[in-house]
Computed example of a mutant assay.
Amino acid sequence: MNQQEGLKHASVIDMHAHIVLAETMGAAGDYGPFLGKYPDNTPYFQIGKTYRLNGVKYEGSPFMDVDCRLEKMAESGIDYQVLSPNPLTYFHFIPAQEAIRFCRIHNDAVARLVGNNSQKLGAFAALPMQDPKAASEELKRAVNELNLMGAGFGTDMPLRLHDPAMDIVYETAAELGVPLYIHPSPAGIDGPEGDPVLRHFELDIVAGFTCQETLAIGSLVYGGVLERHENLKICISHGGGAVAMTRYRMAQAARKRPWSPASLRETGNFEAMLKRLWVDTHIGHPKGIELLSETFGADHLVYGTNFAGWDMPDNLDSHALPGFLADNARKLLCRT
């Protein structure tokens, strides 16, 4: 059974599930990534010389052990997962050649993993987004040669998401008919440091991700990306950040602010553009599907868990999900 057959028969499809691959350790040279342990046996995950994620167990967990992942998926009622790159290893700010090498190693490794478990797993490719031409070429290779389902990358990179230089990546994804899954990463891992306020209490993750996703959608819509690429499929993590709560202000800006393009000034045009985007439902709100449906449309929602992550619900039970979420995922992933 190939990936598409597994996808076809799945009742629950998880679109928000990250992977950490042993083959990629040290694949970005001095930037890592590196696994290690402190003298008290506490694990850490290191990027470069300064950033360490402490206390998260990758080895022997669903992040790295495929048998453990499949077992936990079965316990949670998840039939199929689409694996995406670990946000700590987007490496969008390191030298391009280092990033290109890392992405090729990552994509080859994840293709082997899902190829051996195709009835349960698919995957998105990692891309070297600091070099859009190289990212476009790697996306073609990943889809056409490795049978990956699209690509996953970060909200923050040297170029803004609406920069015309990014169009080559969007054009490639649209031509291939595959989605792009956009997810934040903590600022300052391998690039410019973020707001110092966010360094306290892990607010860069707890609250900063929501801000990044909201800004990403503003960039994509206000910057005309969706208008320039009518067939482009983009999915944003965590319900699209705070857009469902701020859409009124965002729409008012589209209609009234002097920088807004003419195409968004008519009432309803901004809201229509939001319904071109896809979002996953991993927001932890009991009325999340209802809330997100009003903003993005029920037909553009896909199920997401951040599987095995710190914010995955303690008692994840995916059996009672509405069936349309799996149908939506099939539509998003189907090459058009």
Rank of each mutant, 00 (worst) to 15 (best):
V114K: 01
A216R: 04
I234L: 14
A187D: 09
D314G: 15
L292Y: 02
G240N: 15
H200Q: 12
A207K: 08
S136K: 11
P261W: 11
R247T: 12
G224L: 07
P128A: 01
E5P: 05
F34T: 14
P184C: 12
Y181S: 04
V12T: 15
L232P: 04
M25G: 01
D163Q: 12
R276H: 03
D317C: 09
D163L: 09
H106Q: 12
M273K: 03
P43N: 03
P286T: 06
D40M: 09
D40H: 09
P179V: 05
H282Y: 09
G240D: 14
G154M: 04
A262H: 12
N117P: 13
A134P: 02
Q46H: 00
I78H: 09
I168M: 12
Y80A: 02
G150D: 03
T305H: 02
V66Q: 00
T89R: 03
L146M: 06
F93N: 08
D79N: 08
N54Y: 10
K233L: 07
A96T: 07
K49N: 06
T246A: 13
P164Q: 14
S84A: 10
L292I: 11
S219A: 14
D156K: 14
E75D: 10
Q252D: 00
H183C: 06
T305W: 03
D30W: 03
H282S: 00
G29H: 14
A109M: 00
V12K: 11
A142Y: 05
I94A: 07
Y181E: 04
H18E: 01
V143L: 07
T24D: 01
G240C: 05
D195G: 05
R112P: 08
P39Q: 03
I47A: 12
A27K: 14
P158Y: 12
F102E: 03
P186S: 12
M157W: 12
H183N: 02
M149A: 09
L148D: 07
A216I: 08
I105A: 01
A298W: 10
K49T: 06
E171Y: 01
A125E: 00
D299Q: 15
K256V: 03
E5Y: 00
D131Y: 10
N107F: 06
P286E: 09
G241L: 01
L321I: 08
V143A: 05
P43K: 08
Y44E: 07
I205C: 12
I189Y: 15
E290G: 05
D65F: 04
D14L: 10
V221S: 00
Y44F: 15
A125D: 02
T50F: 11
R69A: 07
S136R: 13
R330I: 07
I94G: 09
R104W: 10
A142E: 10
V279N: 08
E98P: 04
L274C: 03
A298S: 13
G223R: 04
K287G: 05
P128W: 04
P184E: 10
Q81A: 07
V114T: 07
M157T: 11
Q46L: 06
P39I: 00
S76H: 05
L127I: 05
H18M: 10
L215F: 14
R249I: 01
R228C: 01
A262M: 13
H300Q: 08
K140A: 04
R160K: 15
D167P: 02
F209S: 09
E5A: 13
Y38W: 11
A244G: 11
E145L: 02
E227Y: 01
P85S: 02
L292G: 06
P184V: 11
P322M: 11
M149V: 06
N116Q: 05
A207T: 12
Q212A: 14
I105Q: 03
